[in-house]
Design a protein around this nucleic acid. Structure first.
Lengths: 194, 194, 194, 194
DNA sequence: CATGAATGAGTATTCATTCAT
DNA sequence: TATGAATGAATACTCATTCAT
């Protein structure tokens, strides 16, 4: 009897379909089918297809951060924190059935989805970036990291995570989170120069 | 009299519109208007809207590589080559009126565009990666770089370029190509550890 | 405690909404809200939206006639009766918050509401007409009126009432029932010729 | 080869369907079918269903006035002019396949069609009224008519025309334009009092 | 070759109605 | 009885594509 709340059901179905087919190619009816409900029901909980996408995005990002923060609590050292972030990122993507790349890319090109959504995206993006930035700054303060350009370094590091996801999905590569994470951090920390 | 060939005209118009509005939101008629020709004419040169996109993508990538290779010819040292790649990437994006990010993201989510296009994308992706990979391997052979995981390092480096583009567009940041390129390479080469 | 019967409540709410927004633009939920009840409850008393409209129409016409007949009882002379009809018509419309025009017009165009409703409308229309016809015939018999075409005169007279309502609503004119009624009857009785 | 212009074709088809079924019950596709064209073509000439209705209404009113004015040119006497108006009205309705009543009624209840259309309707209504008003005033000036309330008389007369149409359609009566017109004018001029 | 008028397949959304509670 | 969450049939409108000129 204790059914999952309808709204959650829709969000999950939406995630699966949107990430697999992209926003425009996803039909509202498909989401309903996957959620095992009637098409009209979606409009009881969301005011439009774009709204479903928007809320799903927020839900997804929140989930990401929740898992991340939990992981970060244990660590104290900047290096370990960065390592945790990379691991978390990879695990998250893998758990998400490896479809998350789509989400990012499709969403970034949907300016037609209204300024409000754009704002949500930018702010969640900044939030992620800031989380990393703080760690790097902490590392510099502690004397563990060099005095590099923090913003750039953050973009660099953050981008590399995206690049890895992108490669994973586009090339259909299976990877070992721990091994990859360690290699990534090694490069980031020590550079590639001999 | 020396008019630009019609096909080229369409490709350029398509690039502008597709990158500004994304694939689905771009109307064929808009491309025609921007190209200063009739809607029907497009179908004389391309068999569908997807085909226009596909060919435009190839043209864009070719252009990217042409400029890149030209730049790489001058350099002999792996480090300088990587530096050139970063600079070229940033300059290219800037020249492209900062719209290229869209291209990547939108395209990656269009599985509905057929397997053929997917293949084109993957292969051009691999081509770009390989170009970088070769340089890194060369650096290792020459003893300039450590013996790191080349594939991963490539993904890492390549991804960081994407991350920088993404940040540029999403956050609307203006950057100085040379300064940024040097900082990026500095991090890549020396790492961030003190 | 002496609550109004639910059905009556719905009918009144329906009248307000239907007359303000027309049949198609009225949502069943709106009627329920205005009646202060749940949407489903309407279907306990009526079998469809069209049925609500149908019954409301009958209720409205009955009310009209009830008021009219009451007024006519006092009068004995045909001329006074016609005068009473005009006054009653105008007062009725005014009391109805000047929305009745809508009712007539919307309803007349709803062939899609089924033959049954059409019949109700026609028969109520005929009933109104007959009421007038009888008075005119009586007037002729009494030698007060000329031997004009009774049916046509009825239509003419009845139509003019509608015309006045229509003008009132469309042009948003406020009128004095007594003054107008007397002028109307004056024209009807004496014509406009000098 | 000399086909009727598409826009005109659509307007005529729209008139037939709208007047038969009312605005809401008319499907755009039905208009297209009746016009013998594709659904999309309608949107080449009109920007919405409401727009088709709006333009059709104007076209219809213009046609009415064109025929009316032509008829009025020949007459010089106010009485003859009124007679002409009545005849014209009846003939017009008959020619229009007896569907015009719908038009008036449906349209008057479509406040949801936007303020612009409301304005068009009111102004065409006033125009018709003014045409009649002028004739009555002329009659008074010439000493043919009594000094009655002109506005009211106009509404009265105009309404009676509507009443006759309404009766014709609702009761499905066939009438002889000339005979009816003369009787109507007789009542209007001389009243019904003996 | 070039065109743009014509087309109709495809889809988000609304809302009357049902029915489990 | 009363309710309102759930439903899906119904429909205006868009736009890639065709083809007569």
């Amino acid at each position: 009897m204790a059914e999952k709340p309808k709204k959650q059901l829709i969000l999950e179905a939406a995630f699966e379909v949107f990430t697999k087919k992209g926003f425009h190619s996803t039909k509202v009816e498909e989401i309903a089918e996957r959620a095992g409900i009637g098409k009209g029901t979606i409009y009881e909980y969301f005011k439009s297809k774009a709204d479903v996408f928007h809320e799903m995005y927020i839900w997804y990002v929140d989930k990401y951060f929740a898992e991340l923060e939990e992981g970060l609590l244990i660590e104290t050292e900047p290096v370990d924190k960065l390592l945790k972030i990379v691991k978390n990122h990879i695990v998250f993507l893998t758990n998400m059935k490896s479809l998350a790349g789509k989400l990012l890319s499709e969403s970034s090109s949907n300016m037609d989805m209204g300024a409000e959504f754009k704002k949500t995206m930018v702010s969640s993006y900044k939030e992620k970036m800031d989380r990393i930035k703080v760690i790097i700054e902490e590392g510099i303060k502690k004397g563990v990291f060099r005095e590099i350009d923090v913003t750039l370094c953050t973009m660099f590091f953050f981008g590399s995570l995206g690049g890895i996801s992108h490669a994973m999905f586009l090339l259909d590569i299976d990877i070992n989170p721990d091994a990859v994470a360690e290699k990534v951090i090694d490069i980031l920390l020590n550079g590639i120069k001999k």
